[in-house]
Amino acid sequence: MSAHTSDDKTMSVKLIVWRQKGPNEPGRFETHLAKGITGHHSFLEMLDVVNEDLIKQGKDPIAFDHDCREGICGTCSTVVNGVPHGGQERTTLCQLHMRKFKDGDAIYLEPWRARAFPIIRDLVVDRGALDTLIQAAGYVSCHTGGVPDANAIPISKPDSDYAMDAAECIGCGACVAACPNGAAMLFAGAKVAQFAALPQGQVEAPERVAAMINAMKECGFGNCTNHYECQAACPKGIDVKFIARLNREFHKALFKAKAGAFIPLVEGE
């Protein structure tokens, strides 16, 4: 029952928030005071308090994306003090609690900023580009029905665990927001790696990696220059080793194409 007593004390924090009415409107910072906040408030509950106050004053509440508020849907997406999701290790913004802040703190709030994520309003951005990447090839092309018994193909526990480590990505886009190049390599790498580790996914592995790399370019994501800011920002602890896996899978695909295999989007010689 450690922090309860201190959690129950109330505090005030100053929010310096990015406000922007629409994608083509100018944006600016606005300052608001959050009062009567306890350590038990989640960050988003603190924003609720501020918004209720703004509505009562006849002002526009701050638009921010959120849904599950339990760290799994990947909807919440705000840069707090320069760090996507606010910087608590392996924690989405909705799971960050105000006990991590002190009375009187000034807190900067900004949307994900990346070329591939246009701003919709205030802290809300359009992350449709991540869906486009999955639509490019983030699947096993199996049809409903007509598949073998689930235990027909044993999968070693290490392979299965590796796939699960990669599959934990919640598609929030913090990795893109944290990357100086606005690259989506951690997101794409995790998907490529998940399927490359499983027999079901290996069949289409060369086509998948080629299609996803191509789609990243088309969507306006940048290139990876090994800053690894993505891993530091990722609320699910997705490892940059999956980026290396993506690169390895791509070279395998190139090699196959050179050897004469037809792989769409990969140029063989």
Binding site: V140, V147, A150, I153, A163, A167, Q200
Partner: peptide, 10 residues
Amino acid sequence: DQCVAQGVPF
């Protein structure tokens, strides 16, 4: 069966 075929890492 379907989910395993899709690559769900149970």
